[in-house]
């Protein structure tokens, strides 16, 4: 009974956090893009610096008609947003938020993380195929090629860290950095590959081909509106947060830091990485699909493999 209660609490807690965090991030993205472009961003809805904007958006999206395009594949279309939420929520399970605070400290945390996030592709493909829209289908196909080919360097780039820390458990990896120093310094190549690949996994500029606005309108979620579209957005921003959090855990010492409690450090570092992601998004143009695949297979993959070999050699010699 107690276990069930604890599990229910965790689920509710994660859901609440996902919501609140996504609102926060959407607001932050608008503010960052605004100030980068010499605008104010949202202001008019109220609250300090227009922070109620996201709440107003949700109200608007709730009130919107739930419109299904004619000829859509009913179940695929209906389920896709829900499916996209599942991996977004599940990955919170293993995040090492504080020194002693992980929802479920799995021994294979890293593997769990990367295998669960690959489910996002399923949701995108369901949405793209189910919408009966050519732009959606193009977006889904692009996302398929992209997520598939960046999954590989993403995982390989983390192996260097795993080798040094000697564990797949995220808490252990973070703990290893408390003595050893941040892995960012030793694994800078790994971090760069990880960062590029995770931006690509998140479908953000310069790799936002799956929803490249000027080319295929909104990609796989062209036909979605109202709450279903909001779920895609929630999942997207939640993924932005979790993959930045993973980067922090692997390369920036996770919750490790002086004075402040661990979870504050963790959130702080994560938001800084998120900010860098936003900064990149509002600076760079979009890459083309063949260049994207070239970059993934011909550059990131060899580099990450070389990184693993180099790390292993150094470890062996030591």
């Amino acid at each position: 009974m107690n276990i069930l209660l604890a599990a229910a609490l965790k689920v509710v807690g994660v859901l609440v956090f996902v919501m609140a965090n996504a609102f926060m991030l959407i607001w932050l993205e608008r503010k960052v893009s605004g100030y980068i472009q010499r605008r104010y961003g949202p202001l008019r809805v109220g609250g300090p610096a227009g922070i109620y904007q996201s709440a107003a958006d949700i109200l608007k999206l709730l009130a919107k008609e739930d419109f299904m395009p004619g000829g859509a594949d009913r179940w695929l279309w209906l389920l896709a947003p829900v499916v996209s939420m599942v991996p977004a929520v599940l990955v919170y399970l293993v995040l090492p938020i504080g020194r002693t605070f992980t929802l479920q400290d799995l021994g294979v945390g890293l593997v769990f993380f990367s295998s669960v996030t690959s489910f996002t592709l399923l949701a995108i493909f369901m949405a793209g195929w189910g919408s009966n829209n050519k732009y959606s289908l193009l977006g889904a196909m692009r996302a398929g090629a992209q997520l598939f080919s960046y999954e590989v360097p993403l995982i390989l780039s983390t192996i260097g860290v795993v080798l040094i820390a000697g564990s797949l458990r995220l808490q252990t990896i973070v703990a290893a950095q408390t003595q050893h120093g941040w892995f960012f310094f030793e694994q800078i190549v790994g971090f760069i590959v990880f960062f590029i690949a995770s931006i690509a996994e998140l479908n953000r500029t310069p790799f936002d081909l799956a929803e490249g606005e000027s080319e295929i309108i909104a990609g796989y979620h062209t036909e979605y509106s109202g709450m279903r579209w909001a779920m895609f957005m929630l999942a997207e921003y939640s993924n932005l947060f979790t993959s930045s959090a993973l980067g922090v855990a692997l390369f920036f010492g996770g919750w490790h830091g002086p004075w402040l409690p661990g979870w504050v450090w963790f959130l702080l570092k994560t938001y800084i990485v998120v900010f860098v992601g936003m900064w990149i998004r509002w600076t760079l143009p979009r890459i083309r699909i063949d260049q994207l695949l070239d970059l993934g297979w011909k550059f990131l993959l060899p580099v990450s493999v070389a990184n693993i070999l180099g790390t292993a050699l150094v470890l062996m010699v030591r």
């Binding site: 472009q37 310069p206 509002w282 760079l284 143009p285």
Partner: peptide, 16 residues
């Protein structure tokens, strides 16, 4: 043109 290529900030700078 920047917007066509997916970069949004140039548009705003040009309009400034």
């Amino acid at each position: 043109f920047g917007m066509d290529l997916g970069a949004f900030s140039p548009f705003m700078y040009a309009f400034r």
